[in-house]
Simulated assay, not measured.
Amino acid sequence: MLPRPLLTSTFALSYRKIPVLAIGREIYCDTSLIIEALENFFPASQGWGTVYPKFEGLDEWTYKGLVRGFASFWTDKPLFRSTTGLIPSRVWSSSFGTDRAQLIGHALDPSKLASKIPQNLANLDLHLSLLEPTFSKPGAWAVPTKTPSLADISLYYQLRWGVDIAAGRGVYDLSGGGTGDAEEDVVGEVFNEGRYPGLWAWFHAFETYISTLPDPQTTVPSSSTTWIETLRQTPLLADEQLLVPTAVEQHPSLDKQRGLVKGVSVSVAPDDTGRDNPTVGTLVKIGVEEVIIQPSEKAELDVRVHFPRLGFVVKVVEGAKL
């Protein structure tokens, strides 16, 4: 929920959603682009992990585009709407509901949302039915790879979050202390071992897998500013390194026809929720899948902000001139 002073005062970032990734003073927004940045700067060829492990028996086939589409257009859209629809009504009555009304762009009625929970459970049941055949073979991941891929990660996150939020776990933090946590098995009538044995086995196998991975996370005390000074001393990327690699270069004329050229003032905002909180700045570079701007607002750090073009709208600010 707003306010988020760390993002706004440090990076001049009005973007509403999380996570946000900082690699030096290059700031990456939206999970879809964050993943590609991590894959680019920390490649498997140098010993890092990957969310695109090789496809069993067909290493030359690149399934990356299909998995990215699965994550962006299935788990992050209709499946997410179903799990979000399971949020307890008391959460919508808190300041979280007020905040999300601003994010979505219209008022929210807690009682009406509560009445839709059975429909959202039915929608979840539909998604699980579509997914179950993929996991009919014991020990299978979403894509036949030796280790989980982005498909497994994105699907697991939505299911884990949906199960927990429907039960009332974590709602105290979600609502900013506006309502308390609970333990109510809401999703169990739909997602259980008897109804979906393949998905159930996969779900718990994935949890076992991630429990074996090292946890490199370090929590920095809120009072510490050392990380800000570290970022301040980090050089910005060279022009040729700015965009994550893509299959093709930027189209030679389409962006120019819309006035999207280096140096112009633009706004960038999601195409679904959060449209009323665009990030405005000077266009630094634009590619077929990514746009980079330097925020107009002053902040503690001089940064460049990277957005994916998928799921975002980039517009020239009215009256802007080079």
Rank of each mutant, 00 (worst) to 15 (best):
E132S: 10
L128G: 01
A107N: 11
F80I: 01
S82E: 12
A107Y: 07
F80P: 00
S82T: 14
L103D: 15
A140H: 10
L150P: 04
T134E: 04
S136Y: 04
A151G: 11
T98A: 08
G97P: 02
A151K: 02
P118A: 08
H127P: 03
W74P: 00
L79M: 09
P88F: 09
V91Y: 06
L128K: 04
S94Y: 11
L79V: 14
L124R: 05
N123C: 08
G69R: 10
S154N: 02
G85T: 11
G97E: 02
G85D: 08
T145D: 07
S154P: 01
D125Y: 05
S136A: 15
L155F: 05
L155P: 01
Q119L: 14
T83R: 00
F135Y: 11
F73C: 08
L128H: 09
S136D: 11
W92C: 02
P133Y: 08
K77V: 14
S72M: 07
R68S: 08
P88I: 09
P118R: 06
T147V: 13
T75A: 04
S149I: 09
Y157M: 09
L150K: 11
G85S: 04
K77T: 15
I153M: 09
R90N: 15
S82W: 11
L79E: 01
A107H: 12
D109S: 11
E132W: 12
S82N: 12
S94Q: 06
A101S: 15
I87Y: 06
D109G: 03
Q119V: 14
T147Y: 13
P88A: 10
P148K: 03
S149H: 07
T147C: 05
A71H: 04
W92P: 04
S154A: 15
A140P: 00
G69L: 07
S136H: 10
T145I: 12
F70L: 05
I153V: 15
R100Q: 13
T134M: 08
A142I: 05
W141M: 06
L121G: 04
N120D: 10
H106A: 10
D152E: 12
G97K: 03
S94P: 01
F73R: 06
A122P: 01
I87T: 13
W92V: 12
G139V: 07
S82Y: 12
A140Q: 08
R100S: 10
D76W: 05
W74R: 00
L103R: 12
K146Y: 09
T145K: 01
